[in-house]
Structures are given as structure tokens and as C-alpha cells.
Simulated scan of single mutants.
Amino acid sequence: MNKNSNAYTFIFAIAMVVIVAVTLSFTSTTLSPLQKENVRKEKMQNILSTVGIETDRENAETLFNKYITQQITLDHEGEEKEDVDAFEVDLAKELSKPIEEQSFPIYLANYDGSDYYIAPMRGNGLWDAIWGYIALKDDANTIKGVIFDHKGETAGLGAEITTDWFQQRFVDEKIFNENGDLVGVSVVKGYSGGNNKDDNKVDSISGATITGDGVTEMIEKRLKNYLPFFKKRQEIKVVTR
């Protein structure tokens, strides 16, 4: 065939498209299991980090199985759903359902002689979804640690919710106010409360008010779904209503 002909050029282009498509498809199929495994282990890392356990992906599953004592899926009344795997619950999909049909995963951990409750969260930032995990001490009131992430917040502004210095502000904050109401922790612009851990407030990120409001709403809204569960546990001393 004449290599200078239009037919040759057309056939060559089609062949290249097919080769590239097959190569990309093969690569995607080959790497998909590895990608899913990395996501699974990263999730374990995030859950563990809320109670102060830092690990790499290689050791994440071992430590997760060691320190996470229970994985429970709850309904909106705080009753356990025995047929739903907590780790596999996708909050992005759950939030699109009526509250009565949603599943609420919670992880119970024991680390360094202390018990913790770890709940996943998901909400909305300025541009797109934000999410994370929050660990409560065994009083179901005091925050042990948090981790936040986002899909599209602005670098240097809303994206700062992923930084240690911002997440550290939540450590030892309370989610119930003095009247026993679950109010979460508010991210407040111009906060002047210093190191007060009993006012349910932390300082915001400069220039990221809407993202901070998203964090505030996410914490309160998601944790309120676990109130029935906390009330059913006799060892919880905090007054909840």
C-alpha cells in the first residue's frame, strides 16, 4: 500500500487508536485491584490516625485489626444492622437516601488502655465534598482526634482543613454543650476563646469561611445520627438529649 495515500493514513490512524485503547484498557484493568487495595488501606490509616496511631500502608491492616475492636453499622434509631459491613458503607451514596434508609458506620477502638468511638463524616465545602473521621473518647463527648479531606477546596485556603495545625485545634474539644445538647464544634471566624476546650468552638482558617462552615455543619449533622446509639450504651455518663 502506498504510504503516501489517504487510505494508508486513515488505516494507520485507526490502528493507533485501537492499540492505544487496548493498552489503556489493559492497564486500567490490571491496576484496578491495586488501586482499590490502596484506597482500602488508606481508609484504615485515616481511621487509626484519629486515635493517634500513625502507620504506613504496609502495616495499616495489621494495626487496624489489632486496635479496632468492633465495626458496627447502625440504623437511624441506633440499632445494629447485622447484614451491612460498616467498612463498605459509602457515605456519598448514603446521603442521597431518606434518613430512615441510611446506614451509619461506627468503629470502636481500644488503644493504650483507652476506648474510643470513631465515626466517618461527609459534608460540603465551598466547591465540592469534604469528609473525614472523628474519634471520641469513652465519654462520647471529648474529641480525641479528627482527620479531614476534600475534593476541590482552594489551595492555601479551604484545603488547609487537611493540615495538622488545623486538625489539632479539635483535640479535647467537647461536642455537647453545658446543657447536654449535641452541638458539635463550630469553626468560628475571629474566635478569641484561646485554649478553651469547653465552649464548642475553634478558630477558623483565614479566608476559608465557607469551608469552615461546612466543617461545622458536617460534624454536628453527622454526629447527631449517633445519639440513639450513645444513649443505649449504659457506660456513657454524658447527659444527651
Score class of each variant (00 low, 15 high):
42 E>N: 13
102 Q>H: 03
90 D>L: 03
12 F>Y: 12
66 K>F: 05
234 Q>R: 09
110 N>H: 13
233 R>Y: 07
143 I>P: 01
81 K>W: 02
62 T>G: 00
20 V>H: 03
209 T>S: 12
200 N>L: 06
86 A>I: 01
30 T>K: 12
147 I>N: 11
239 V>Q: 07
130 I>L: 06
210 I>H: 03
77 E>K: 15
140 A>I: 11
66 K>H: 04
38 N>Q: 14
67 Y>C: 08
22 V>L: 14
115 D>V: 01
181 D>M: 09
183 V>N: 07
172 D>L: 15
93 K>S: 14
21 A>T: 14
44 M>T: 04
226 Y>K: 05
210 I>F: 10
127 W>N: 10
239 V>Y: 11
74 L>D: 01
60 A>M: 03
219 I>A: 01
66 K>R: 15
68 I>D: 02
46 N>E: 13
71 Q>N: 06
232 K>Y: 04
70 Q>R: 10
176 F>S: 05
171 V>A: 07
111 Y>L: 05
157 L>S: 13
159 A>L: 05
238 V>K: 08
118 I>G: 00
51 V>D: 09
158 G>R: 09
121 M>C: 09
24 L>C: 12
216 T>C: 04
101 E>D: 15
218 M>I: 07
93 K>R: 10
230 F>D: 08
9 T>V: 15
108 L>I: 13
117 Y>P: 00
239 V>R: 10
73 T>A: 09
57 R>A: 10
151 K>Q: 15
79 E>H: 12
11 I>H: 10
70 Q>E: 08
109 A>P: 00
39 V>N: 07
204 S>W: 01
46 N>P: 00
154 T>V: 07
186 S>A: 14
157 L>F: 11
134 I>A: 01
29 T>Q: 10
165 W>E: 14
1 M>H: 11
125 G>W: 02
96 S>A: 09
120 P>Y: 00
146 V>A: 10
142 T>W: 04
186 S>N: 11
184 G>F: 05
200 N>T: 06
13 A>R: 07
37 E>K: 13
130 I>H: 05
103 S>F: 04
38 N>A: 15
189 K>R: 11
117 Y>N: 02
147 I>G: 02
142 T>L: 06
13 A>E: 06
29 T>V: 13
28 S>I: 09
69 T>N: 08
188 V>Q: 14
188 V>S: 11
215 V>G: 04
230 F>R: 04
51 V>T: 09
153 E>G: 12
205 I>F: 07
67 Y>H: 14
102 Q>G: 03
26 F>Q: 14
71 Q>S: 11
139 D>A: 02
107 Y>L: 05
178 E>V: 13
146 V>T: 15
87 F>W: 05
158 G>H: 07
160 E>A: 04
233 R>N: 14
88 E>K: 15
60 A>V: 08
172 D>G: 02
140 A>C: 07
129 A>S: 11
207 G>P: 02
216 T>I: 07
206 S>C: 07
